[in-house]
Nucleic acid binder design. Structure first.
Lengths: 231, 231
DNA sequence: CCAAAAGTGTTGGCCTTACACCCATGA
DNA sequence: TCATGGGTGTAAGGCCAACACTTTTGG
């Protein structure tokens, strides 16, 4: 078979990227989803996605989609899984590559998101999603929990300065269970990746909680090696 | 935008599946790779792969490719990652979804494999592979090791009856380090998923080692819940 | 002065690891 | 009888989970 028939006889497919975009706000883990604009299922809730173009990699497509919706660059993203069932999209045969992203909600462009019909919803309030998007979300959650054991994912979701109770609250949201206050502090501080600031955040208590930020150098070092993070 | 322009304006892409096929034979972890038949890179070593057709899911495409090469059905397979760089295949823009498979080499169709130009090579003897296939292999190995912590992957690679030294040897190959004989037996037997047979295998020692096989019921039960398998 | 959240250490149990000798048998 | 790989138990240390009280301060 010649090179031409080898490649040219093969069928081509629409390829999409769909992003499961997590954020953290008001002590809740949230998801950015949007109202679909086109048929079939126009008006129904959907993950944020788009088609892969000829001149971009799938990773770049995901980053582009994210930027278009949130205005943000250089976001933490990871590829999750590719959904390839023939009839998963009722409009056409579309193979979808999913990514999850972790976003600091405060830093994103709320106006841009609204223009796209995108909204942050708390995980407990997520309506049914089109096609297999609910399954994608569930897999993303499983992966997020899994990833949190070996990677400091939580830090991507918090603002630059944060308190330990906030961080713990975030992990409690991710794992959907309570974490022991003392054990949590012990473990986090033992990693030695946090820098204690002189400021306190009194927004959630009278006593006030110390603010911390990441020690970038140690954090980068730890990222290279990975680490155990069993809660 | 109408439904037609939404789907029809989007570009289409060649989508391939590439399989990282692991087997275990003569105490070595092996990989099934083949000589590529078409240009570019005809004659070079390649993973086993093929294009996704219109009437099949990506999972089905991977299973088909595997069956065409080994004659085997109902193989343990898992999707790994999708490689979407624009220029990763020098012949055309191809998006590749990778799968890894665990095979009992003894049960596969060696003649069929040879007809396809496919060969089992020990991991240490793998030549450079085309395109990004070496990267795919490395990721598959990482994933296999990772998966082995939470899933009894080793059992998929052994014949129905096997000895504990064989099983340990397999895990040593996967982790590329020695495992303590006593601790290994303790842990495996504590899982209570093995059935001890009356037969012995004397092929590798004069004393002979007891043969075991899996207790299907308990094994299925354990597969549902997952389990820790730290070696 | 009281309510509400922040902060702080110790202990027991379990799990992991390290480690050495006897057994069975074919050659 | 000896060489080869198979099979067996125990003890120490590290890690994780459970647990309750004091501190601070705004209202």
């Amino acid at each position: 078979m010649s090179i031409h028939s080898f490649y040219e006889n093969a069928p081509k497919h629409l390829v999409a990227v769909d992003c499961i975009i997590f954020g953290f706000e008001d002590g809740k883990l949230k998801l950015l989803i949007m109202k679909r604009k086109v048929d079939p299922m126009a008006g129904a809730w959907s993950l944020v996605g788009g088609f892969v173009q000829d001149n971009e990699s799938t990773d770049e497509a995901a980053a582009r989609v994210l930027k278009q919706t949130t205005g943000m660059d250089h976001i933490y993203m990871d590829q999750l899984h590719t959904y390839g069932d023939v009839n998963r999209d009722t409009g056409a045969r579309v193979i979808s590559v999913t990514y999850y992203a972790l976003i600091r909600i405060k830093e994103h462009d709320r106006i841009l998101a609204n223009d796209h019909g995108a909204h942050w919803l708390s995980l407990h309030q997520i309506p049914p999603l089109i096609f297999d998007h609910s399954v994608m979300l569930q897999h993303a959650l499983d992966k997020l929990r899994d990833k949190a054991h070996t990677y400091p994912v939580g830090f991507e979701l918090l603002p630059e300065k944060f308190t330990l109770p906030q961080l713990r609250n975030l992990y409690e949201e991710i794992y959907q269970r309570e974490l022991d206050k003392r054990n949590f502090r012990k473990k986090i501080l033992a990693m030695n990746i946090l820098e204690k600031l002189d400021e306190k955040d009194k927004s959630s208590s009278k006593k006030g909680a110390h603010l911390y930020k990441f020690d970038e150098a140690k954090y980068e070092q730890l990222m290279k090696t990975g680490f155990g993070f069993t809660m």
